[in-house]
Simulated scan of single mutants.
Amino acid sequence: MHRRSRGVVDTLETYGQLVARLAIDLTAVSVLTFAVYYPRHRRRDLVPAYLALNVALFSVVAALSQVGGGGGMALGFGLFGVLSIIRLRSDSIQHEEVAYYFTTLVLGLLCALPHLPLAVAGALAALLLLVIHVADHPRLLSGTRRAVITLDVVHADEAALRADLARRLGEPLTWTVKQVDFVRDLMVVDVRFRVPELSGRVARTTRRTALSATRSRTNALPVPRPPAKETV
C-alpha cells in the first residue's frame, strides 16, 4: 500500500514537472514568435512553423525521457532523422529567420530535458530571448544594408563597378558578382553597402523646407473680406 501511494506521488510530481516545463516552453516560444519575430518581419507563414516545430520537439524529448531501453534509442534516431530533413537553405528564408528556427529548436530541447532544474531552464530560455531580441534589433547596425541588384552594364574593371555601386546605393563594403550576361549586357551583383549617414538628415531637411514653403504660400494668400453691409 505504501509503495502504491509512493508511486502515485511520483507520478503526480512527474506530471507536475512536465506541465511546468510545458508552460515555460509555451511562454518562451510565444514571446519569441508574437513579441519579437512577427512585429519585426511580418511573415505570418512562419508563425505556425515556429510554434509547431517547438511543441513537436518538446513532445518528442519529453517522450524520450519517459521511454527507456530500445524504445528511447528508437525515438532518438527518429528525432535525428526528423531534424536532418528540415531544409533551411531555401532562398525564401532569410538568415535571421534561420536564427529564429534554431532558437525555437533549442527552446523546445531545453524546456523538455527532465533532469534540468526548472529555474535553470527558465533562465536559459530568458537568455535566448534576450540574445535574439538584441541581435535582431532594427537599430543594431542599421546603417548597413544588403541588396541583390541587376546592372544594365557589365563592368570589367573593379574600380568602375565600385563607383557604379556607390552612385546607386551608397558606400559598398563587399560584393559578389553572381551572374554576367554579355548577350544582354547585364550583371547581377550581391552587394553589402552602408547607407549614407547624411541621407536621413537631408530627407528631414527637405521635408522641413517643403513644409515651410507651403506655410509661407498659405500665409501669403490674401484673406477674403466679408462683403460690406448696405446702409438703408
Rank of each mutant, 00 (worst) to 15 (best):
A99E: 06
A74F: 13
R87L: 12
M73F: 10
F102W: 06
V134C: 06
L109C: 00
S59P: 05
F80K: 07
L57A: 04
L110E: 02
S59N: 06
L75M: 14
L57H: 07
F102T: 12
V131A: 15
G68V: 05
A56I: 13
T144I: 15
A62M: 04
V60F: 04
H115L: 13
L107T: 00
V67E: 14
I149H: 00
G72H: 01
I132Q: 01
G69C: 07
M73R: 11
R89K: 09
R145W: 07
A135C: 07
L127D: 10
G71E: 08
L141M: 12
V60I: 15
L124I: 11
L118A: 02
G78P: 08
A62Y: 03
A147L: 06
L75N: 15
V131M: 09
L129E: 00
L128S: 00
L110T: 05
F102R: 02
S142W: 10
L140F: 06
L128A: 01
S90L: 05
L141D: 11
I149F: 00
L64T: 03
P117R: 02
L110S: 00
G76C: 08
D91T: 14
P138C: 02
G69H: 07
L118N: 08
E96V: 12
A56G: 07
I93Q: 03
A123D: 11
A119S: 14
A56K: 03
A99D: 07
T104W: 02
G72S: 02
A62I: 04
T103N: 09
A126C: 05
A99T: 15
Y101C: 12
L83I: 11
L64P: 03
A135L: 14
L88Y: 07
G68A: 13
L79C: 06
L130E: 07
L116M: 14
G71C: 13
A63N: 10
A63W: 01
S142T: 05
A126P: 02
L141T: 04
S59M: 14
T103C: 11
G81C: 11
G71P: 13
S142C: 10
T103G: 06
S92Y: 12
C111W: 00
S142P: 05
E96R: 09
V55L: 15
R146G: 03
G122Y: 09
